[in-house]
C-alpha cells in the first residue's frame, strides 16, 4: 500500500487530479497512454495520480500495469483491478473509492483521447469554476480522425436529434473525455443507470438537471486502425432506446 499524503489539510491545498482509466485488453495502449499522461501532467506541474481499473483482461493488461507501477511509482500509478468485466458506472465508483484527488478525469485508454487536452480542461475548469468540463468533437477545432462519411453522418445525425429532443446544454453528449469535481461525479454516477454510449449522455443530462455548470473544450478524437470501430445496428438501436428513455424521464 502506498502511504497517502495528508488528505487536503486546508482549503488552500493544491488541486489534485485523479485519472480513472478503465481497461479491458489494452496491453498495447496502456503504457503509451500512461507515458503521455505523465508527460503532460509533468509539464504542467500538476498534482495527479492514474488509477487503472482493469477488468480481468485475458491479454495481460494488469501485468503491464504492474510493470508501469514499478517504473513510475505507487503514488503515480494506482492499481484497482476487478475480477471480470463489469459496467462502466461501477468502474468509476470502484476507482473513485480510492481516489485522493479532488478532481476526477475520465477518458478512454485506447488513445482516442489525447492527454494533451487535459491541461486545457484544467484551465477551463479554473476559469469558470465549472462542476464538469466535457471534451467536444463538435465545436471549434474539435474533430475526428479515421471516420468515414457514414460514421460522420450517423454521429452528426444522432447528435442533432439529441440536441433537439433533450436540449442538454452541451454539444458532445456521447464523448467520454471529461473532468469532474469528485463530489459531482459521485452524485451523478449513483443516479445513472444506462449502459454504453447512453451512459455518458445520461451523465450530462442529469448534470444539467441538477444545475451543475458545464464547460467545454474542443478535442480531436483519433480513431486508430487497431481499435476496431464499434458502431453497428445494435448500437444504434440501443442508442435510440436510451435517448427516448431520457426524453421521457428527465
Amino acid at each position: 500500500m502506498a502511504s497517502r499524503k495528508s488528505s487536503q489539510p486546508k482549503r488552500e491545498s493544491r488541486d489534485k487530479y485523479s485519472v480513472l482509466l478503465p481497461t479491458y485488453n489494452e496491453r498495447e495502449n496502456l503504457p503509451l497512454i500512461v507515458w503521455l499522461l505523465l508527460k503532460y501532467f509533468g509539464e504542467g506541474g500538476y498534482d495527479y495520480e492514474i488509477i487503472i481499473i482493469d477488468d480481468g483482461s485475458p491479454d495481460g493488461t494488469l501485468e503491464v500495469a504492474e510493470q508501469l507501477q514499478k517504473i513510475y511509482g505507487k503514488d503515480k500509478i494506482v492499481l484497482r483491478p476487478r475480477e471480470k468485466k463489469l459496467g462502466l458506472g461501477t468502474a468509476y465508483i470502484h476507482g473513485m473509492k480510492h481516489a485522493t484527488g479532488n478532481f476526477i478525469i475520465i477518458m478512454d485508454a485506447d488513445l482516442s483521447h489525447h492527454p494533451k487536452f487535459i491541461p486545457e480542461f484544467i484551465e477551463k475548469q479554473k476559469e469558470g469554476g465549472y462542476d464538469l468540463v466535457s471534451g467536444t468533437r463538435y465545436q471549434g477545432n474539435g474533430g475526428v480522425y479515421g471516420w468515414d462519411l457514414r460514421r460522420k453522418l450517423i454521429s452528426r445525425g444522432a447528435n442533432f436529434l439529441t440536441q433537439v429532443l433533450l436540449r442538454p446544454g452541451a454539444s458532445d453528449l456521447t464523448g467520454s473525455f471529461r473532468l469532474y469535481k469528485k463530489n459531482v461525479l459521485e452524485s451523478l454516477v449513483e443516479r445513472c443507470v444506462s449502459k454504453g454510449y447512453v451512459f455518458q449522455m445520461e451523465m450530462i443530462v442529469r448534470a444539467r438537471q441538477l444545475n451543475y455548470t458545464i464547460g467545454e473544450v474542443p478535442i480531436s478524437f483519433v480513431d486508430r486502425v487497431y481499435g476496431e470501430s464499434k458502431l453497428g445496428g445494435n448500437e444504434i438501436v440501443s442508442f435510440v432506446r436510451g435517448l427516448l428513455t431520457l426524453f421521457a424521464t428527465t
Binding site: L111, H114, Y138, N141, G142, G143, V144, Y145, G146, W147, L149, K152, L153, S155, R156, G157, F160, S220, F221, V222, R224
Partner: peptide, 18 residues
C-alpha cells in the same frame, strides 16, 4: 446535419502527432 457533416474536422495533424 449536411453542413455539419461536410465541415466535420478531419484531424490528420493530430493523428500524425500521436
Amino acid at each position: 446535419v449536411g453542413f455539419r457533416v461536410a465541415t466535420f474536422n478531419d484531424c490528420d495533424e493530430a493523428a500524425r502527432e500521436l
